[in-house]
């Protein structure tokens, strides 16, 4: 039983299966856990921002990297979850059940929209390359709608949608009188990211995951084996939307605020970029890329550097030119080759 779980976690669906890798992984997790102790509350909360984007990136890796379906509009589910949480929790201020209701409501709302949309797309067998555009149109539609919701006619209960200025004063999650802020919010994000990562690895190493990967490799053959690929694609799409919603829910905790630009074209491109730069065929690679790209971008902007966008653009072009399968994935492969060779030499 135990070994079965270990196999699910440690299986080959993601880079890093060796003992050395897992020791390194645990050390890194410990370092992350110790990080807030050495730094100011600001640094911790900033790092929490990098962390909270990871589920969105993981959703992208799951859907695009493992299932071969690209969504250019996953930020829509991020936004729907964030807004729904804001509406429910904002209407039930002072009631601790309200916050949990907000979380559940946010997840349900985005699951529902994703489910309907994915049904519409996959059961109609829409061409693969049109899906990114369809999802993009959906998220632009959402942005256009939310942008004009200033004013009282767009009040849900006591909460104003707020139009382009965004929804403000969204309450933070709390247990009893303990509010997740600063350091504690960092740990909340870290734990959620770890759970998401391990759970996804287990999922992808399971039979279901293997079928999903088979769909990516050869949908026709997989279907001939008798698997209903539409249902599986549907499920993967909804799962990745749930991951995006988790990011959305954490985001509104972090800033107590959400705006329509969160579901706009610029935001929509980001998860796709994280996945491409790291290497979309690996969960860990996407995690690393999400962390590093967010950090670089913030560091450049904090310096007031006008060249930030030029630098990021150049980095993207170079990465895609020289690391077509992602910088982290190809580095890992290179390390893998190197260690294999030295192992082989040792045994000879």
């Amino acid at each position: 039983m135990n070994s079965k779980i270990l196999h699910l976690i440690g299986g080959g669906a993601d880079i890093g299966t060796s003992r050395t890798f897992w020791i390194g992984f645990i050390i890194v997790v410990i370092l992350f856990a110790l990080y807030p102790i050495q730094v100011s509350e600001f640094r911790a909360s900033n790092a929490a921002y990098y962390l909270l984007n990871i589920p969105l990136g993981l959703g992208m890796a799951l859907l695009w990297g493992y299932c071969g379906v690209l969504s250019f509009g996953h930020v829509a589910y991020f936004g729907i979850a964030g807004y729904t949480y804001g509406i429910i929790a904002g209407n039930m201020v002072g009631n601790s059940f309200g916050l949990i209701a907000g979380v559940i409501g946010g997840l349900l709302a985005s699951t529902l929209v994703a489910g309907v949309f994915a049904y519409f797309v996959f059961y109609a067998r829409v061409r693969e390359w049109i899906i990114p555009i369809l999802t993009l149109v959906l998220t632009i539609l959402l942005e256009t709608f939310l942008g004009q919701t200033a004013g009282y006619q767009w009040r849900v209960g006591s909460v104003l949608l707020g139009g382009y200025n965004g929804m403000t004063g969204i309450p933070s999650i709390q247990i009893g009188s303990f509010v997740f802020m600063g350091y504690s919010f960092y740990y909340l994000c870290l734990i959620i990211v770890l759970v998401c990562y391990v759970a996804l690895r287990m999922l992808l190493n399971s039979n279901f995951g293997q079928v999903v990967i088979a769909i990516r490799e050869d949908p026709l053959r997989t279907e001939m084996f008798g698997y209903d690929i539409r249902a599986r694609k549907w499920l993967v799409f909804v799962l990745s939307a749930v991951l995006a919603s988790i990011s959305g829910l954490l985001y509104v905790q972090w800033g107590n605020y959400i705006t329509p630009s969160q579901v706009g074209l610029l935001s929509a491109a980001l998860p796709v970029i994280w996945a491409s730069v790291g290497g979309r065929s690996s969960l860990l690679a996407v995690i690393i890329a999400t962390l590093i790209l967010n950090w670089v971008n913030f560091t450049l902007s904090a310096q007031g550097n006008q060249y930030a966008m030029v630098i990021i653009g150049t980095a993207l072009v170079i990465t895609m030119l020289f690391f077509p399968r992602g910088i982290v994935v190809m580095t890992a492969e290179w390390i893998g080759k190197f260690t294999n060779r030295s192992n082989n030499e040792a045994t000879h």
Partner: peptide
């Protein structure tokens, strides 16, 4: 992704 980089 590349053309996105170029556009930036």
């Amino acid at each position: 992704v590349v053309t996105w980089g170029i556009s930036l």
